[in-house]
Amino acid sequence: MSFMQINDLKVHYPIRGGFFNRVIDQVHAVDGITMEFERGKAYGLVGESGCGKSTTGKAIIGLEKISGGSIFYEGENVTNKRRSRKSAFSRDVQMIFQDAHSSLNPRKRVKDIIAEPIRNFLKLSPQEEERKISELLDIVGMPDDAKFKYPHEFSGGQKQRLGIARAIATNPKLIIADEPVSALDLSVQAQVLNFMKDIQNEFGISYLFISHDLGVVKHMCDHISIMYKGRFVESGTKGDIYHNPQHIYTKRLLSAIPEVTPVGREQRKRERIQVEQHYQVEHKNYFDENERVFDLVPVSSTHFVAATSQVKEVM
């Protein structure tokens, strides 16, 4: 059973202009997406830059004003609720940011950075708090003396681990990870990903993993949604998306990913060009006249794909 439901979430930005700076149009950054989160599962949100995947993450945690739709957390409507110290939702949903460096306050010691969510949400005595911080540093594999250091004294991978320590301080149920490893080198990326998997297994955390890197998403996630212009084009289990992609956009995205073997690369290039041509020709059948993706229709119990115009007419 899912503990959190998102129904028809919309985030629209106003475009102002003309006389008196009135709202003259809207940007549909997120335009009607529906998701459910179950315990201990990892959900991937994939798309090209500007497709609205980060906005979705921010809207869920409340950093972005929701224009339509609703979010239910354990039966409670938390749409556009202010983040407060009393709310279970604010405590149980945490975020890891892409740029670890700019997400840590340079003027605070590690101790105070990690203590922030603890002070906000858990009522602990100073000794308990101290113990909790040591425990958290131990979980993310950092030495205890890191407490008294400042963020600039750490490397990129270590900073990202501090960000994770802060996110798991309140024993959250869902962590929204917005491109958590995009800025890291391959070997450091491996370290952070392994570690995120470990704490997932240990604490039963769910992830909303936002990334443009399909390799990373495949490694981490059970369930993947592909996003384009604020809407889902396809959503399903890892197997559904990678072995049985239905939508032309998904196929195009998958064909563009470089494989880590030079064997058969000419063949792949030919296929890629073929898919691209197919995409140009078939484009109008998959998107309406405003480039909007059609609504999702089920293919199987787990696999949903945006309809094509032919299907639309039959319906």
């Binding site: 080198d185 070997s187 491996a190 998997k197 890197d213 990373v216 490694h219 880590v260």
Partner: peptide
């Protein structure tokens, strides 16, 4: 070889990635 083993492979289902000890 360590670098190759750190790549989240598109085709493998392995649970853990290789980590290179220490830092550059």
């Amino acid at each position: 070889r360590s670098l190759f083993n750190s790549i989240p492979q598109m085709n493998s289902e392995s649970e853990r990635l290789n980590v290179i000890e220490g830092i550059v």
